[in-house]
Design a protein around this nucleic acid. Sequence first.
DNA 1: CGTCCACGTCTAC
DNA 2: TAGACCTGGACGG
Length: 257
Amino acid sequence: MPELPECRIMSDFINHTCENKNFEKIYRVEKGNQPIEYLSSKFSVSSDTNGKEIILNLKFKEKSIPVYVFMGMNGNWKYVNTENWNDTKYIRLRMDDESGKSLLLYGGYMGPKYKIGEKFGGAKRGPDPTKNFNDFKDNILSNLDKKDFDKPIYEALLNQKYFNGIGNYLRSSILYYLDENPFQIAREVIKNRPEIINMCRDIPIKSYNLNGGQLKDWKNPFDTESTDFKDWVYYQKGLSIKDSNNRTFWFHPKWKN
DNA sequence: CGTCCACGTCTAC
DNA sequence: TAGACCTGGACGG
């Protein structure tokens, strides 16, 4: 679900919601209803993103604790009255402030996961194309000889080591607007059409400016509309195939064989 | 009813 | 390169 634009929007929502508020308790809801003992003192909450990763900063008097979050296929955030916290299904994380409200991280099927004070293992995420574009570009160009770029471009674009933040609708949209055969080897496409690197920055920003991809489950937490988004995005349009990871890739019919 | 599909990533054979 | 994670909506018989 959430790709880079949606993660940035959710991060904006967290920053907007938590500005000038004091929190005092944090609960790992799936592990019970007791607040985490060693974090039960006043703290502020701010948020940043790196591609599809959201990083909360819990600032205590004596220390700062990062919380690393990835949203999975269908996570989101909301800010509710604490007394009604349990009206929301599939809550993962709950933070109570001193005004009687709570910030919730929730999501069911393949939903969000988080780690408090430590990063996720697995493949390392590359630089964020919308925030550190020069590093993003260097990271691709200086690794172009790697095996990762032997794959067709439509598969390579989901590799978070190089294309942090690009997800399923963004790869289809980038390749559609690039107007290049998406079944070519990634390395060749990047060499012949280097503007694809800029598009990995500009297409997510465009989506962000259209209030994000409200495709199916995900809703913009600011309650904004996204009618223009659906006209613009290249998703569930044209033809599709299953990629090697069994994910659907949408492409213009003219590239069929 | 059943079957297929979904904006993602980690882990194990 | 599978399988695991894990819910619910759409659609067909």
